[in-house]
Amino acid sequence: MSDIEKKWYVIKTISGQENKIKFYIENELINNGFKNEIGKILVPIEKIIKMRKGKRIYREKAYYPGYVMIEANLDGEALHAIRNVPGVITFLGEGKGTKSNPVPMRKEEISKMLGKMEDLSNSYKNINLSFVVGETIKVIDGPFNGFNGTIEKINEEKKKLELAVLIFGRKTPLELNFTQIEKI
Rank of each mutant, 00 (worst) to 15 (best):
residue 22 K to C: 03
residue 108 E to Q: 11
residue 1 M to R: 14
residue 66 G to H: 04
residue 105 M to Q: 03
residue 108 E to S: 14
residue 77 E to D: 15
residue 158 K to D: 08
residue 99 K to I: 14
residue 69 M to E: 00
residue 102 P to C: 06
residue 70 I to M: 02
residue 3 D to W: 11
residue 52 R to T: 09
residue 15 S to W: 00
residue 181 I to T: 03
residue 56 R to Y: 13
residue 67 Y to K: 07
residue 144 F to P: 00
residue 97 G to L: 04
residue 71 E to W: 02
residue 154 I to A: 00
residue 42 L to D: 03
residue 178 F to S: 04
residue 34 F to C: 11
residue 1 M to V: 15
residue 84 N to V: 04
residue 35 K to M: 09
residue 27 N to W: 08
residue 103 V to W: 08
residue 175 E to L: 13
residue 113 M to K: 06
residue 146 G to S: 02
residue 90 T to V: 11
residue 38 I to S: 03
residue 62 A to Y: 08
residue 143 P to E: 15
residue 39 G to L: 06
residue 48 I to P: 07
residue 124 Y to G: 04
residue 25 I to R: 05
residue 40 K to L: 10
residue 36 N to G: 05
residue 29 L to E: 01
residue 27 N to P: 00
residue 12 K to L: 10
residue 75 D to G: 13
residue 182 E to H: 10
residue 156 E to I: 09
residue 78 A to Y: 06
residue 77 E to Y: 14
residue 153 K to L: 03
residue 19 N to V: 07
residue 77 E to A: 13
residue 42 L to T: 05
residue 138 K to D: 07
residue 44 P to Y: 02
residue 166 L to D: 13
residue 22 K to H: 05
residue 75 D to N: 14
residue 98 T to H: 10
residue 104 P to M: 06
residue 14 I to D: 11
residue 18 E to R: 01
residue 179 T to N: 13
residue 118 E to L: 11
residue 152 E to F: 00
residue 161 L to Q: 03
residue 8 W to I: 03
residue 62 A to T: 12
residue 171 K to R: 11
residue 73 N to R: 02
residue 120 L to G: 00
residue 138 K to Q: 12
residue 16 G to I: 06
residue 101 N to E: 12
residue 127 I to A: 04
residue 132 V to I: 12
residue 112 K to M: 10
residue 58 Y to S: 08
residue 175 E to N: 11
residue 89 I to V: 15
residue 21 I to Y: 00
residue 155 N to I: 09
residue 92 L to C: 12
residue 107 K to H: 08
residue 179 T to D: 13
residue 25 I to P: 03
residue 19 N to H: 09
residue 15 S to I: 07
residue 109 E to M: 06
residue 64 Y to T: 09
residue 108 E to N: 13
residue 7 K to V: 04
residue 172 T to D: 00
residue 132 V to H: 09
residue 50 K to N: 14
residue 160 K to P: 00
residue 45 I to H: 10
residue 54 G to W: 09
residue 166 L to N: 14
residue 161 L to N: 01
residue 95 G to Y: 08
residue 80 H to P: 00
residue 162 E to S: 11
residue 44 P to W: 02
residue 174 L to H: 03
residue 34 F to I: 06
residue 22 K to S: 03
residue 147 F to S: 07
residue 102 P to T: 07
residue 100 S to E: 12
residue 173 P to R: 10
residue 26 E to C: 06
residue 156 E to K: 11
residue 30 I to H: 09
residue 125 K to A: 06
residue 94 E to F: 08
residue 14 I to R: 15
residue 109 E to A: 06
residue 91 F to N: 01
residue 110 I to Y: 07
residue 179 T to Q: 14
residue 17 Q to W: 09
residue 169 G to M: 04
residue 120 L to A: 04
residue 146 G to T: 03
residue 175 E to P: 02
residue 96 K to T: 10
residue 101 N to P: 05
residue 11 I to C: 03
residue 19 N to R: 12
residue 104 P to I: 07
residue 113 M to N: 05
residue 63 Y to F: 14
residue 94 E to P: 05
residue 162 E to A: 06
residue 45 I to G: 01
residue 28 E to K: 15
residue 1 M to D: 13
residue 124 Y to P: 03
residue 66 G to E: 01
residue 87 G to I: 05
residue 108 E to T: 11
residue 66 G to R: 02
residue 27 N to K: 14
residue 177 N to F: 14
